[in-house]
Amino acid sequence: MSDATHAPSGDHHGSRRTYLTGFLLSVVLTAVPFWLVMTGTLDNQTTAIAIVVFAVIQILVHTVCFLHVNTRAEGGWTLLAYIFTGVIVLIVISGSLWIMYHLGTNMMPMTGTDGPS
């Protein structure tokens, strides 16, 4: 009953248009990486860079269109928490890879051929 009167338009929930825009964008941003990898149109290096770029864009599209993160929702606290988490996620992943890669290269050669190279 009170939905129509005090619906805070556009703060926490999107319109049909927001959802459809997000959906169409993410279909393209999903299909192109799969197509690139499955057909092997470009060389491996370029493909790898391209699909990572597509993934980052798609994550941002989902965040804006589906999760409705913006500067107004919850007085900006969702956005702040999101950015903070993004920084931590980047530090955890890139830091782990960096440290473990150098540990691996500085180790004595293993007896077998396996092991992190």
Partner: peptide, 21 residues
């Protein structure tokens, strides 16, 4: 639900697509 979809973007990109490459 939408958060899980965002995580899946990471999974299919970094695990599957980059793994096959």
């Amino acid at each position: 639900w939408h958060f899980l979809d965002v995580v899946w973007i990471g999974v299919f990109t970094f695990v599957y697509l980059l793994g096959v490459l």
